[in-house]
Design a protein around this nucleic acid. Structure first.
Length: 863
RNA sequence: GCGAGGGUGGCGAAAUUGGCAAACGCACUGGAUUUAGGAUCCAGCGGCUUCGUGCCUUGCGGGUUCAAGUCCCGCCUCUCGCACCA
């Protein structure tokens, strides 16, 4: 036992002991209640960053705590190992993506181990491993058989920089979510998963996720975007046929005066053909197709359109409606055509004004009369229907149903539900991903790779292309294959790989039986462990990853592989780790070691200019406001780093990095260390006080404080995950011990209470600073890890004080404080309060109107 | 524009059902110890103050209540998400 707290040897020592004892390895045990704690697995980019440290520290505290509470805790870790950075690195450094990835994994595994996280490393998995992705290929084939997957040519989001297709979810404000490049549209054959088949169910279950943050649930609901309305068919004026529209406002159908179609709509070309508009329409459509998506979705985007040269008929009014195509109509939503009701839709109103189109008011507000000519904006509120034939006089909201009935009776349309959520395009024109297990044969068409031939292994000898694009398509040995059906040797393999979100949609099930060779997972193991009791990760995955995982769970259920619908019972989305930015006028953002600090202020290391302290932002390499976990571990040890991450803010909030705060965490551990090592000689052979005797004075107070602390810490961890307040509670206990220790090192009972208090502090700290706690625990003569003992329980009896401080208020202001015996009844407290000197003085010459007594808390005298 | 979540000392934050606002920590100030620095220990630390513990103080303005950071109404502001979705 050393006098000075020296974390490195201690941490390495306990990491070895934990490993040798196999403390973190778990298996299914029907006798014990399970607890599956999962943190989002990292992409192996090369190094652990502070966000990981925070995420995994939060998880580790919960895992260790639950374990001490007697649960059989599954706490696995692995690697989301496929993805683009590996290919970029390969091109930049001429290393194979596999080599680069595995090297990063080795490095990051060491870093995680150095932080002392309680993972069952036997369950480690990498999604780039063929024994992993073979099973998602297997599922793909099964889904193909069941028509849950399909191929279609579609206009896709294309990123020129990444040379790949992006899912809608990966386009943020018209730009690539990864590199920020502007996304353009391109037609390609793509594989899609029918996630929209589950839209209704995914939406319905949003309300059955009580353990999820409201924010995330709302984001999911918005993303799915259900709209209830009707499809209405508008017959063309000339010839057969009709235009179908989707609307949520069938109540306004009598006010529909023109039609707007997406430029991509197939009817646009057909209708304008042969009219004098043809040339202009074609030019317009062509221009729109090349317009940047970012421009088409930007705020100040000018609405423009063009008459296609044809008319349709409003089936309710018989009126002719000119047909337009316009840039704001989206082919992907609804039917790609919109009935325009300028009087009651702002966008239609603006369009009508611009092109001089007719405006007909069909909803009149209560007590007002709208005139189409005088309107300056659309009227979108409720009202009474007018100029709407048989529906005149109805409240517009009530008319929604009547008009829908009418549509269906007359065969003009039907009720419909539309979702914003579209099918999930998973094809990626990249190398470093799981190959899509399909073969194209001239004779047989699209053929799935038979189960026995799986996995389709990603070849290792592919050349990365500087220009991007798929290296697989130029690899003849991979592409050329036999047709599994007819045996023709002219067949060609699919060269696209799967979106990496596919791998992360089922890894939590794989963890239950990570080496299982006969299926995606061992059903029994999954039955025992799943669903995940607590999932922890960044809010940036609130839509994509979580929605896909929920969808995959439903797919697995369809195949009878699992029997639950929701994979994650509780979800915690932790805040970002932030730090202030520092900028030099000449050299841009600076790392903190590029800044020279002096009395005069902070200067740039390179030019000596005064630097500007910028705003606090999420840590990122580009802003140079990152701190390196390795350097901190070296200086302070893992326990200090863990302690700071938990103490600085509650998990769901952003954490502002503070070097001085880390220093404070370090000081606290040293203080505890000194406190214990200083009194170790006196306490070593003392049994902790067990409540067997009546106590008095400081001993009693400390004993009470200790039980109070157990209660607070337990409650903070269990109910709220508020580790910051749990840590302050332990700090208070340590302060109390510190202030009383001089008086408590003499009598046997006093020593026992001291020992109890000190041991309890160590146990309560153990999930947070596990190496530190184990070392001190051992110094008390224990020979197991703290992790192996039970979490302490508190005794209400010990927490109760004999004397209680009661606040006495006059007219709601605190005027005095009195001590009364616990359990004194209201009337008695009132009497004591009224007899108090200060209060008597206050009440001179005033009449008491009312006295309110809150037992054990306060008295308020109203005068 | 729509939706969600914030706004409390110099800073990070606390106050679990309405009941002593600012626990705990950081920074700062004074003192002890030290050759010195650091570390440690002790004390102080929202504002005003006629130093009476007197008044004020939880983004702003109203309200309910014996009592409001907490509940209700209106507004300001910041962050995040969505946004021509028909």
């Amino acid at each position: 036992m050393q006098d000075k707290y020296n974390p490195e040897p201690i941490e390495l020592k306990w990491q070895r002991i934990w490993k040798d004892k196999g403390l973190f390895q778990v298996k299914e045990d029907p006798e014990k209640e399970k607890y599956y704690l999962l943190e989002m697995f990292p992409y192996p980019s090369g190094n652990i960053h502070m966000g990981h440290v925070r995420n995994y520290t939060i998880g580790d505290v919960v895992a260790r705590y639950k374990r001490m509470r007697g649960y059989n805790v599954l706490h696995p870790m692995g690697w989301d190992a496929f993805g683009m950075p590996a290919e970029n690195a390969a091109i930049a450094n001429n290393v194979h993506p596999a080599k680069w990835t595995y090297k990063n994994i080795d490095n990051m595994r060491l870093q995680l181990k150095r932080l002392g996280f309680s993972y069952d490393w036997d369950r480690e998995l990498s999604t780039c491993h063929r024994q992993y992705y073979r099973w998602e290929q297997w599922l793909f084939v099964k889904m193909l058989e069941k028509d849950m997957v399909y191929r279609k040519k579609s206009s896709v989001n294309w990123c020129k920089t990444c040379q790949t297709v992006l899912a809608n979810e990966q386009v943020e404000g018209g730009c690539c979510w990864r590199c920020g490049e502007v996304v353009i549209q391109r037609d390609l054959d793509q594989w899609f998963l029918r996630i929209s088949d589950f839209a209704e169910d995914l939406l319905a279950y949003c309300d059955r996720l009580p353990g999820w943050p409201d924010k995330v649930v709302t984001m999911q609901k918005n993303w799915i975007g259900k709209s209830v309305g009707a499809e209405i068919r508008f017959p063309l004026k000339d010839g057969d046929g009709h235009i179908a529209v989707f609307t949520t406002r069938q109540d306004t159908v009598f006010g529909a005066t023109f039609m707007v179609m997406a430029p991509e709509h197939p009817l646009v070309g057909r209708l304008s053909a042969g009219t004098e508009q043809e040339g202009q329409v074609n030019a317009f459509v062509e221009r729109m197709r090349h317009e940047d998506k970012i421009k088409r979705t930007s705020d100040d985007y000018e609405k423009e359109g063009i008459f296609v040269g044809a008319y349709c008929i409003n089936p309710f009014t018989g009126r002719e409606m000119p047909i337009f195509t316009a840039n704001f109509a989206l082919m992907e939503y609804g039917t790609g055509a919109v009935m325009a009701v300028p009087a009651h839709d702002q966008r239609d109103f603006e369009f009508a004004k611009k092109y001089g189109l007719e405006i007909i008011v069909v909803i009149q507000p209560e007590g007002d009369l709208l005139e189409a000519q005088c309107m300056t904006e659309a009227y979108v509120e409720e009202g009474v229907l007018v100029q709407s034939g048989q529906f005149d006089g109805l409240q517009n909201l009530n008319a929604l149903d009547d008009i829908a009935d009418c549509l269906e009776e007359k065969g003009l349309g039907k009720r419909t539900v539309n979702f914003r959520l579209r099918d999930w395009g998973i094809s990626r024109q990249r190398y470093w991903g799981a190959p899509i297990p399909v073969v194209y044969c001239d004779r047989c068409g699209v053929v799935a790779v038979p189960e026995d031939d799986l996995p389709v292994v990603l070849p290792e000898d592919a050349q990365m292309l500087e220009a991007g694009g798929s290296p697989l398509s130029s690899l003849e040995s991979f592409v050329k294959t036999k047709c599994p059906k007819c045996g023709s040797s002219d067949a060609r393999r699919e060269t696209d790989t799967m979106d990496t979100f596919v791998e992360s949609s089922w890894y939590f099930e794989r963890y239950c039986s990570p080496r299982y060779g006969k299926a995606m997972f061992d059903k029994e193991a999954v039955k025992y462990w799943m669903p995940v009791d607590q999932y922890i990760g960044g809010v940036e995955h609130a839509i994509l990853h979580l929605l896909y995982s929920r969808y995959f769970t439903r797919v697995l259920r369809e195949f009878g592989l699992v029997d639950y619908k929701e994979p994650f019972t509780r979800l915690l989305t932790q805040g970002m780790v932030c730090k202030e930015t520092v900028k030099c006028p000449d050299h841009g953002f600076l790392f903190s070691d590029e800044v020279i600090t002096s009395e005069a202020g902070n200067a740039c290391k390179y030019c000596g200019s005064q630097v500007k302290i910028g705003r606090i932002e999420k840590m990122s390499k580009s802003k140079k406001n990152v701190v390196d976990p390795n350097a901190l571990i070296e200086k302070y040890g893992a326990d200090t780093l863990r302690l700071f991450c938990l103490f600085a803010a509650p998990p769901e909030r952003d954490l502002d990095w503070s070097d001085q705060g880390v220093e404070g965490a370090w000081r606290f551990l040293n203080r505890v260390w000194r406190l214990i090592t200083d009194s170790l000689d006196e306490l070593r052979d003392v049994r902790p006080f067990d409540g067997g005797k009546a106590l008095t004075g400081d001993a009693k107070a400390l004993y009470r404080k200790t039980h109070q602390t157990i209660k607070r810490v337990t409650n903070d961890i269990e109910a709220r995950f508020h580790f910051n307040t749990a840590i302050s509670a332990v700090m208070e206990l340590i302060n109390t011990i510190h202030s009383k220790k001089e008086n408590l090192l003499s009598s046997p009972e006093d020593l026992q209470v001291m020992r109890f208090a000190v041991e309890t502090a160590v146990i309560l700290l153990s999930p947070i600073a596990p190496h530190f706690a184990d070392e001190l625990w051992e110094s008390f003569g224990h020979n197991e890890s703290v992790l192996e003992i039970s979490w302490p329980t508190y005794m209400e009896e010990a927490i109760k004080a004999d004397e209680i401080l009661v606040v006495v208020q006059v007219n709601g202001k605190v005027r005095s404080k009195i001590e009364v015996a616990a359990g004194t009844d209201g009337k008695q407290i009132e009497n004591v309060a009224l007899a108090d000197e200060r209060i008597v003085a206050r009440l001179q010459g005033r009449t008491i109107k009312k006295v309110i007594v809150v037992k054990n808390k306060l008295v308020n005298i109203v005068v």
